[in-house]
Design a protein around this nucleic acid. Structure first.
Lengths: 119, 119
DNA sequence: CATCAATATTGACAGTGATCGATATAAGAG
DNA sequence: CTCTTATATCGATCACTGTCAATATTGATG
């Protein structure tokens, strides 16, 4: 049994005994977090947050990565809806979608906000 | 040049032109986020948040995973400092470290809080 | 000590992902 | 139309990781 704080000494662990299993789309939440859980993409997001709209070509240098790799990361960020893309002529300018970024933390926020039920 | 919002029409993109590159330990932040960016571990965290201290043996069933796999995930969570471990006899009870979980969002919070400098 | 139960570790394997070079696509300039 | 530039996609490679079976370790109990 999932131990309660008020039973400490002689408690037994009998599997299968009522365990509160909260629901939630863990797969979706994890997928979104995975996009952010990368040093390069975190860096890109920080750069976008500090510079506003940034041309893709300006990212290769500070990131120290090849053009295809930068494009790959921008694609993931854009597909996840974290970043906006706007093409002007040949260039592509990317910007941070702050609302979307806020949505990424949601699953984590609920964790700390959740009442630790059985006490 | 990283385009500014006030120059729209005839702007040019000349790489190497001053781009604000914020510092920050992206590697560390990403590493911490990676621990959380997994469906199984998110689920574990949610279960811990809802049940208080939970015996490891009670997690295999709701997760539908083998004992070694559950132990592996608990190890990662514990190594990252997100979860507390307490052995009582043969059992091991795990609990959520809410403060640590809050620290995971920090890098994301700073993103949205950061002033979009050049506007 | 011998035995049993819970947990941790090891080894192997499959799937995923970050990276780059090469190539394709798109759009402006001559 | 041709050339150049920026971006996107493709293919391959390499490292990492989630998973399980097997085994080791730890702790309680006869």
């Amino acid at each position: 049994m999932a131990i309660r704080e008020n039973l400490l000494a002689g408690d037994v662990c009998s599997p299968g005994t009522a365990l509160v299993v909260p629901e939630g789309d863990d797969a979706a939440a994890a997928a979104l977090l995975k996009v952010v859980a990368d040093p390069t993409r975190l860096r890109i997001l920080r750069i976008l947050a500090a510079n506003g709209a940034v041309c893709a070509c300006d990212l290769e240098a500070p990131l120290g990565l090849s053009q295809p790799t930068v494009s790959h990361h921008l694609r993931l960020l854009h597909d996840a809806g974290l970043v906006t893309r706007e093409k002007r002529g040949t260039w592509a300018f990317f910007g941070l979608d702050t609302e979307a970024v806020a949505r990424v933390n949601a699953p984590l926020m609920t964790l700390t906000a959740l009442p630790s039920v059985p006490r």
